[in-house]
Design a binder for these strands. Structure first.
Length: 408
RNA sequence: GGACAGGUGGCCGAGUGGUUAAAGGCAGCAGACUGUAAAUCUGCCCGCGCAAGCGUACGCUAGUUCGAAUCUAGCCCUGUCCA
């Protein structure tokens, strides 16, 4: 079953990108004989993608590496509605200006991971607002409406989940799946797109798109879903201290991004190396076989390679140097959060807040009371303590979060 | 439009007049153990304050009461069923 003829499916399956395929043989045959145009859709709800989206971007990267053409579809139009899939509450609707700004932010990561040009395999980015916002209601009902039955729509997990949980599902959101199916057909017509990727929660939407395209235009298209990425301890991938692990540097510093990967669960290292890096498979096999504390070396490779891909080699090296100095040397690295003090001294509480280690004075006090605050490695027990800042000093929250306090 | 059920802290979910800043769980933070891992155990977990305490908080508004998340009225929102 893993014996694919096409380089594409072989590559994707050995890297762990595939969960389900609508027609494995048909797609395999297609990919073996011609350039396949494939897309993945992205919401424009935030100014950056996050780690939860990264697997799909890597997937498009591999597609291009295998000699095919990726389309990054920006959901500028559908973002105006809100996807009910897997969510239990409606999403806030955004204005056109915000959506446009978000798309510009999201574009950055694609520029790093895909090659955009006019060649046959050059990546392109399109916005479904281009066609969705021009759509007339009557026209849509007439052309698309007959191909969907409500009976069927009600059986999709995305809808059932909301209904079962007794959470509201508005008609607006209910229509999301129709628009998404329409996207696939539109891309098939405009760009010869034959394949849609999506998370496993998008299966229903993808299938709808395939059927709609076939019924309206007689074109056979395919779908593939990616596994839902969870960490080994069962949590959704991509959450961190302050929420999402953003891909854009403005949203999350390089060092924190690097640290996120460095702290990967042992059991996830091999899987993540395959999905999120271009490290050769035999090298990954070697790395994930490391036992005990040696696997930390594999985590460093993971952190370096992902950071290099998303933030640039230089950023990865700087982050690693900082981590090296901070953890192995017990010293300071320049990528650590830094607080400049003008008066030569500062209260511990203010310092903890200033470095972002505590959100409020109360939180800072609790940290100190719990023995989690350390100045140059020594626990600070007194929350009224004043730190003399004549040279660089190291203030830590717990064992992993370190910061620099230095004279201005 | 009608009947019934419901709206509690980031989430889930107890609580039906004071002892409730609100049980419990999850998530989060910290400590121990370690390998910057996991699991486990322990502490913390609205804000301000050294503290006593103060301020906010149980859909919204107005009431009853010495005292309300808990009672009353109106409103808003959601679900289920009926029209």
């Amino acid at each position: 079953m893993t014996e694919y003829k096409s380089d594409l499916l072989r590559l994707l399956s050995e890297r762990g990108h595939i969960h389900q395929l609508t027609d494995a043989q048909g797609l395999d045959a297609l990919a073996a004989k011609e350039i396949v145009v494939a897309y993945n859709g992205y919401d424009a709800t935030a100014p950056s993608l996050h780690v939860g989206n990264l697997a799909s971007v890597m997937l498009l990267r591999r597609l291009q590496q295998a000699g095919h053409k990726p389309i990054a579809l920006m959901g500028g139009g559908t973002t105006k509605i809100g996807d009910p899939s897997g969510k239990d509450t409606s999403r806030q609707m955004l204005t056109e200006e915000i959506i446009a700004a978000n798309i510009a932010g999201i574009r950055k990561v694609f520029d790093r991971l895909l090659t955009f040009d006019d060649s046959a395999t050059g990546a392109i980015m399109v916005n479904n607002d281009d066609w969705l916002s021009k759509l007339g209601y009557i026209e849509l009902l007439r052309d698309v409406g007959p191909h969907f039955t409500v009976n069927r729509m009600l059986t999709f997990d995305s809808v059932k989940l909301r209904l079962d949980r007794e959470q509201p599902l508005t008609f607006l959101e209910f229509n999301y799946m129709i628009l998404q199916a329409y996207d696939f057909r539109e891309l098939a017509l405009r760009h010869g797109c034959r394949l849609q990727f999506g998370g496993s929660d998008q299966w229903g939407n993808i299938v709808n798109g395939i059927e709609l395209t076939r019924r309206m235009n007689g074109i056979e298209v395919y779908g593939a879903t990616t596994p839902l990425l969870t960490t080994a301890d069962g949590a959704k991938m991509g959450k961190s201290v302050n929420g999402a692990v953003w891909l854009n540097e403005e949203m999350l510093p390089n060092y924190d991004f690097w640290q996120f990967w460095r702290n990967t669960d042992d059991r996830d290292v091999g899987r993540f190396l395959r999905i999120f890096t271009d490290v050769p498979l035999d090298e990954i096999a070697r790395l994930e076989a490391l036992q005990g504390s040696e696997i930390n070396a594999a985590k460093a490779v993971l952190a370096n390679e992902v950071t290099a891909l998303i933030r640039g080699r230089e950023a990865a090296e700087a982050a690693q140097a900082t981590a090296q100095a901070t953890f192995a040397g017990g010293g300071l690295g320049q990528d650590l959060p830094t607080l400049e003090v003008g008066d030569g001294s500062i209260g511990v509480i203010e310092a903890l807040i200033g470095l972002g280690f505590a959100a409020s004075r109360g939180e800072a006090k609790r940290l100190i009371a719990g023995g989690g605050a350390r100045l140059d490695g020594e626990p600070v027990r007194d929350d009224t303590a004043v730190i003399e800042v004549l040279a660089e000093r190291r203030l830590s929250s717990g064992k992993k979060k370190h910061g620099i306090i230095k004279p201005a």
